[in-house]
Amino acid sequence: MSSTLSNAVRPDDGVDPTMRPGRLRPRRDAQAPARRGRLGPALLILPALALALGIFAYPLAESMWRSIADPQPGVQNYQWFAASAANWAVLGRTLWVAFLSAVICLALAYPYAYFMTISGPRLRTALIVIVLIPFWTSLMIRSFAWIILLQDTGLANQVLSWMGLGPFHLIRNTTGILIGMVQVLLPFMVLPLYSAMKNVDLRLVQAAASLGARPIVAFTRVFVPLAMPGVVSGSLLVFIQALGFYITPALLGSPSQMLISQYIYVQVNGQLQWGRGSVLGVLLLVATLLLLGLLALLMRKSRRAAGDEGGLL
């Protein structure tokens, strides 16, 4: 271990020469006061940088490389993707499910966060705790709990059948995936929404009312636009996380409703087609970036229309 440690700072190891003790001593001394102030913080981020490079950049580069080099160099993996309708179905389904998760989370979280904004401190704390409790519970345990509750012979269907309804198939399909994902992702919508809403000056809504706006108008034309940044950041957080979900769809979904993360698993682990798995990963990344780019463009346009130059994206 110790030999490897020193190995990483050998003189010809590619470390920035200015950081190497000894050789550049004179130059450093000349500029010592100014440089030391700047170099200290720069050095502090090195561990994080090394970690980011090693854990994120390297694997990403590796999967991009594999998508065109495994098992042999060429674009056969991309051709494979384009040729099969099942591949497009899986990608489309993944984007659709992520979109639905974001919409459902928004619909549930908006009133909840608004209620948090207008309630007193004690109730607000309780509301935050309620949102955060699932955060502290293992994802696996929650997913298994959902299986037991939602299966055809489970509690949810028993209650429904007492009311003369059902039975509904609530798991091993997209419904199950959505129920599980929304529950897991809801805090990621509630918290950004709440933090945006609490910064909205509620006196503005009152001012609108005092100028004759009906409550609904005051709310939609004053409060909603001001809280919009929370909607955008919450939706993005939920959407992007939903794209890569694995455990919840694997447990609550079905192979026939497979999402892309499960499909990657099948390619990498079941079929040993690492190149194809890499293609799926790369395409998911590209699709996500394209959607984000589109959204950023739309946001900028609408902001310019509103005469606001500030940027969230």
Binding site: S6, V9, M19, P47
Partner: peptide
């Protein structure tokens, strides 16, 4: 594995090196 040691390694750099290694 190399056997070079450098006692003047700065602590922060050492940390980075540890992470890398």
């Amino acid at each position: 594995m190399y056997k070079t040691t450098n006692s003047r390694v700065k602590p922060t750099l050492g940390l980075a090196a540890a992470a890398l290694s």
